[in-house]
């Protein structure tokens, strides 16, 4: 049989509040860069996260990673964010802006602790109209 690559993708979701704001900069700067995302008291999204893992399919289980292990690892990373204010309650966002780019980088860093090199691609939907992707290319 021809040699192939196999990737499995699963969609998860979490809901969180955030505010885009650079504390060192004045109100005019923040308003200009972030517009309504700079709203003083924050706002929120239902985030959808599509996680792809890639690797050899275990000949016994027929899986790249047993789905139960996969779900548990993802739960550990996502549960702390769910129904939270990212900037106030998650340490990473004390000194990173909670943009989609930064959230997807944070999620990669956390998920890689459990999934290692099998972590292949993340696609984070902030709304139905914008998404952020991070993919391993080495």
């Amino acid at each position: 049989m021809k040699k192939v690559q196999v990737a499995l993708s699963k969609v998860f979701s979490f809901s969180a509040a955030h505010r885009l704001h650079v504390p060192e900069k004045d109100q005019a700067f923040n308003q200009q860069i972030y517009d309504k995302c700079n709203n003083l008291n924050g706002h929120g999204h239902d985030y959808y996260l599509e996680i792809s893992i890639k690797g050899p399919v275990n000949t016994k289980t027929g899986m790249i990673i047993p789905l139960t292990d996969f779900d548990q690892a993802v739960e550990k990373v996502i549960a702390p964010l769910d129904h939270r204010h990212l900037d106030h309650e998650i340490d990473y966002f004390k000194n990173h802006r909670s943009t989609g780019e930064e959230i997807v980088k944070y999620l990669w860093q956390e998920l890689e602790k459990y999934l290692g090199k099998k972590l292949f691609r993340l696609k984070l939907w902030e709304t139905n109209n914008n998404y952020f992707e991070l993919e391993r290319i080495d």
Partner: peptide, 13 residues
């Protein structure tokens, strides 16, 4: 299902 899928493609791509 809508939230779970697998891709297969040749190794050289």
């Amino acid at each position: 299902r809508g939230d779970l899928y697998v891709d297969v493609w040749p190794e050289d791509k």
